[in-house]
Amino acid sequence: MISFENISFSVAGRTLVKNSTVNIPSGHKVGLVGKNGTGKTSLFRLIYGEITLDQGNLKLNKNARVGGVSQEVPGSSVTLLDTVLAADRERTDLLQKAEEETDPFKISEIQTRLADIDAWSGEARASTILNGLGFDTHKQKLACSEFSGGWRMRVALAAVLFSKPDLLLLDEPSNYLDLEGTIWLQAYISKYPSTIILISHDRALLNNSVNSILHLENKELHLYSGNYESFAKTRAARLAHKQAEAKKQNLRRQHLQAYVDRFRYKADKAKQAQSRLKMLAKMEPISISSEATLKKFDFPQPEELSPPIVNIQNASVGYGDQTVLSDINLRIDQD
């Protein structure tokens, strides 16, 4: 579906990815993860064609349609349902041509294509997506201008899902969804028929919707099979092995250096000392990523507090002279 062949690219003079090769097959659901600022969103911009490669090749399937959510839909007088339906441009264009065309042969071709893309179920499909993202039937008939920016971001997400691009790019979609919407999106992504690359810090979303993890670290891209939990375990094992190898190398380096320091100026040992110096020079340091050096914090179990933690008796609350609640009796214990 999409291949990165020995790619390097930079933004504002800062290299974000260097000499990386990754192939993502068609139909894969991929979670793109990495520390903030490493270049995940910039990788999306590269796929969109907004920035260019410094070297290498980016290959997409021929005629592949790429879609994503860049901004909220405008606050127009168009209804939510019509806004989502309009996102499928081919369907919209064909329906328009079907009304205007007079040539029987061309009309037949148009109707055949409309059937091929399941155009007649479009309204029901769009309504189902909107409903999953929190818009009931009544809200779907309201104008976009009736909703805030956060809700219009949901409409934009619904629109791109309805258009079914061959490569769907989603950047933190759960940021503007509630729990119900996120759970619905998990199920939708897992059944999506084409390729998805998803940027998210939501581990539940990554665990329940993707089958591969693309990790961006130290300016390199690495593709792991499985969900986020599987990736975390695999990576932890690799890091542990790498740390062990680095420790062994460091001990070896210290041993060689000690020999050199002791014998380099002794005539009968100078040759061996020089040989060990060359070995030290050829020894490539094993680098450990900055993420691997992060410390794990363990918080001790707190002592149990004496009950009650909260105790309210015969209380009243309000503002000004207006009492809102009265005769409040509340007790909260630790259990």
Rank of each mutant, 00 (worst) to 15 (best):
I183R: 14
L239C: 06
C144M: 04
D82T: 05
H241P: 00
L198C: 02
L32V: 05
N175E: 04
F44Y: 07
I7E: 03
S3K: 13
K242H: 08
K247C: 06
G49S: 03
I286P: 08
N36C: 05
L305Q: 12
P302S: 08
V11D: 01
I129A: 06
K296H: 13
D116A: 13
E229W: 02
N19H: 11
K247Q: 14
D136H: 09
G39N: 07
T293V: 13
S70Y: 11
G13Y: 07
A12F: 09
I197D: 00
L32Y: 06
P74T: 06
G37V: 07
V210Q: 00
I24A: 00
E101W: 06
T128M: 12
D166M: 00
Q55F: 00
H215F: 13
K59W: 11
T83C: 09
P285L: 07
N207W: 06
R238Q: 15
T92A: 15
P300C: 06
N218R: 08
S174T: 14
S108T: 13
H241F: 10
Y192L: 01
K295H: 11
A156D: 03
N211L: 04
E284W: 02
L170W: 04
D136C: 07
E245V: 10
E229M: 09
F162S: 01
N61Y: 09
I288D: 05
A240T: 10
K106Y: 12
L95S: 06
L330W: 04
I312F: 08
Q313G: 05
A126N: 02
Q243K: 15
M153H: 12
S194L: 10
K271F: 12
C144R: 03
A119Y: 08
F44V: 01
S316V: 05
K282N: 15
L16G: 01
K266T: 11
Q334M: 10
S42F: 07
L168N: 00
Y188C: 01
E303Y: 10
S326V: 03
S230I: 14
F135K: 03
N250F: 08
S209N: 06
S316G: 08
N208T: 10
F4Q: 00
T182H: 07
G56P: 09
D116I: 09
Q257S: 10
F231E: 03
L130V: 02
A315M: 15
D103S: 04
S3Q: 13
T137V: 12
A87W: 02
D88R: 04
Q96A: 14
A270K: 14
S20D: 05
A281C: 06
Q140E: 03
I117E: 02
